[in-house]
Write a protein that binds this DNA or RNA. Sequence first.
DNA 1: AACGGAGCCAACCGCGATTGG
DNA 2: ACCAATCGCGGTTGGCTCCGT
Length: 313
Amino acid sequence: MGRPPCCDRVGIKKGPWTPEEDIILVSYIQEHGPGNWRSVPTNTGLMRCSKSCRLRWINYLRPGIKHGNFTPHEEGIILHLQALLGNRWAAIASYLPQRTDNDIKNYWNTHLKKKIDKFQTDTAGSYVISPDTNPFCHDYIAKGCNTEAMKQEMKFPLSRFSQTPSIYASSTENISRLLEGWVRSSPKAAAKKKEFAITDNNNSSSSGSSNTVTAASPKENKPAERNQEGCVAVAHEDLDSLLSFENISGMISWGKIHGPQLAQANAEAKQDAETSQPPLSLLENWLFDEALGQADGFLELPANCLSWSAMLS
DNA sequence: AACGGAGCCAACCGCGATTGG
DNA sequence: ACCAATCGCGGTTGGCTCCGT
């Protein structure tokens, strides 16, 4: 017998994360970048296992994460991809960069599955959502391909698409709220301030060599405002900048791409894929085309899928 | 106001894949 | 080639909140 899994070791904390733990984790990742999760609990003193740290970052703390309120548009994409890919939540999430696989999975289990069940009940089971009935697949079939061929084609790794830079919005409102709330409410915050100092930034550059969160607007270089306790309240825009990936060493591969850059990246990826890899699947072509046709990094849904989504609502 | 059930979601668990020695 | 550690994913659960009675 080897040593027990890290999460079973004595002293490992479980349950909901506290704001203090989140701050520590975010600070650490800001300095070192995500990855090497094994070292996170050791280096931060967090009484959490590496797995838990990773999950907390991926599902909640990572910049650009959007929670709740799925739009009909997103709903359509999920329905669409779930019918094609099954419960491959990570693959589905790769097409919705602001959503985590966990979020999508939860939304599917709590909302969409029920809608589909209800829809199927209402239609006496005569309409089953599957690759065979998905309107998108009808297109595929109309173009002379059967669903088996499509399933085969789906074996081409979807990760090929995800080789293009991931798109992460820089919105960190959640973390900003967290920080502000924590600073306001926790007496420990003042004490912690020394450890994780949120300082004015009269210099335009940050050294990045210390465990320091530098909060100053990059646009106006204005000092961050201090609250009553003498702590610094970080404005959302400041935190957006603060936690944007340009500011986070080790996160280069997660470069933020917007609009034209996205289109360019996708076009390049498409070109590369066309020249060096097997022909794109219809799905991938659709995704590429859709990505090119919009500017905010979000996939547009083909009209037939929107109507398909609307059928369930 | 109190209670119970349903819904929701963050977090955990287990397993397969990957990596490094 | 083998083994152990780690990572990543999908399924499941526990606890909180909301809502109806």
